[in-house]
Design a protein around this nucleic acid. Sequence first.
RNA 1: GCCCCGGUAGCUCAGCUGGCAGAGCGGCGGCCUCGUAAGCCGCAGGUCGCGGGUUCAAAGCCCGCCCGGGGCUCCA
Length: 627
Amino acid sequence: MGGDVAELKVIQLHVDYVEYEPIQPESGVYEEAEKKVYRIEEALLLLTSVEKGDNKMLAEKAIDDAAAFMKKLKISKLVIYPYAHLSVNLAPPSHAIEVIRAMKERAKALGLDFHAAPFGWNKRLVIAVKGHPLAEQLRSYAAEELAKPSEEVPEALLMEEKLESYWYILTPEGEMIPVKDFDFRGHENLEAFAKYEMQKSRAVLEQPPHVSLMKRLEIADHEPASDPGNLRWYARGRLIKSLLEQYVTEKVIEYGGIEVETPIMYDMGHPALKKYLHKFPARQYVIPVEDKKYFLRFAACFGQFLIAKDMQLSYRHLPLWLYELTRYSFRREKSGELVGLKRLRAFTMPDVHALCKDLEQAKEEMKKRLKLSLEVMEGIGFSEDDLEMAIRFTKDFYEENRDFIFDLVRMFGKPVLAEMWSERYFYFVLKWEFNFVDCQRKAAALSTDQIDVENARSYGITYVNEEGEEEYPIILHCSPSGAIERVIYALLEKAELMRQRGEKPMLPVWLSPIQVRIIPIKSMYVPDCVKLMEELEKNGIRVDVDDRDETVDKRIREAETEWIPYIVVYGEKEKTSGTLSVRIRSEDKIMAMKPEDLIAKIREETGDKPFKKLPLPKLLSRRPAFR
RNA sequence: GCCCCGGUAGCUCAGCUGGCAGAGCGGCGGCCUCGUAAGCCGCAGGUCGCGGGUUCAAAGCCCGCCCGGGGCUCCA
């Protein structure tokens, strides 16, 4: 940034306190100051570097900006602190002191409660920066573009703050009802979701149920030796995750997705990425390699956009779906924000983009993708009662595309929470998500899609239209399932909700790590049980045999606590009759079934879902516990 | 980042106002060979997160730090 163009550089910090002590003058030009400790609390600190060519107008602009920010964050004190270390193109001290003085005068004119550290001194400095995303910002003011700061970082974020949101419920009947007027009877989850989104009042103390479940069921666990939010996955978890990954990928490919794979780290200095990167607070993992810095990707967008930019695209190729499932995407969320499988620092995200030639095509594609997402969620095992939809859009977009928005609502088939923004920020004009409302009545977004009208330009992605001219496509960003870990979170929370209703908690059969457990009554039946196991395995069923020297009761109990959908107890009766005694979890009863009937029943339940073999020893006597 | 809670055996946890480190489960050994949710007996297993301090005496109290969970905030 900057370099040859003069910019007034300001690091703006919202501080709990700042403390400085002038030690000695270190420049020929310096202000008078008393050598004592100055301490200012709850203030906005401006570490300011003046470059050659900066002027009074820039100084005033900087103060005006700071004042606006202070008002928004209700900060009452301002500290102006000359800080030469932000530039290699410093103005001479005699000039710099003038610009700093102009800042002070402006602050005085605006009636701000401000303090100014003396110019030209070597000072001891202690800063305690607050921990919110807007607390640290670099702002720079260039001489030729006075109107706005050259960094888009703070602007995008500040706009979000001042942006007005209007909340409605949209119904399949085509009504748009302000949330406060909507009758939520029969839509309790939607009500919880709406409240969650609008009020943000969340006083819950207990640990979410899925966290202890993920450990007890040997799905996943915290890894103390890694960074928080990077989990270890045990065999069952890896299996479940792998099945979900495979399922989503197959569905996307069925819809025409083109699967690619891209690097997980990118050069922070790359021009196309720099801008995107700087739009967000520093939440990346950064890896220094030789003299460069790389960040770990926080979404699949980069790799796909960089591929798309190099593709030879014509309108004939559009719409074009590019797909990748990232294992992993990395976001260095604040430590306090991490929650079990719901919010992680490393997560698996299927992401399918669609390049569309114009808005009409984008709208058609978005409908297809909503259908895809509905199918995926249903296929995983969520019912319509489990999901609530939100649609968010700008006012302008709504006015021009009302019918389209209600088409989406009708496809979902239930009332939908709508958030309407007075103006556009970020890169999309509309996004929708499915949300799951968990045991704590908190919501988490799963599937989502967005209409991006900005990134094609940023990345230089073009196609050639019918007239032979280059155009920027509109890009849709869809994750048909949302993060895979979060899907598992929702499945576990759903199971806990089942338990609370008095049903037996379980995972969908196709995702159950063990679908059938065979329990021989005596050790002499183990060979027969192994034979039966092999028969079931041949039919694409995950089976094991509890051959341990334990009582039948105990082995049944353990199979039940593992949520195994079918438990077969095998003894003399079964051996002679050829009929199995099957304990069916979902129906909470024991049924006599022929092996072929059991196979048929499971095959019907798992349908066309992916199958993977059990990645564990199949004899329980040979199987270690992970914890 | 801030606030709250926690860290004791592999796991889950008890251990009050300071007084010999415990239980259940799991593991190992033995008995039992069992018909739909925990059979019985025995054995092994501990730097009480780390470092200081107070005390005759610290798992416990004090100070500092590390780690984890939750809440706030945030969620491209």
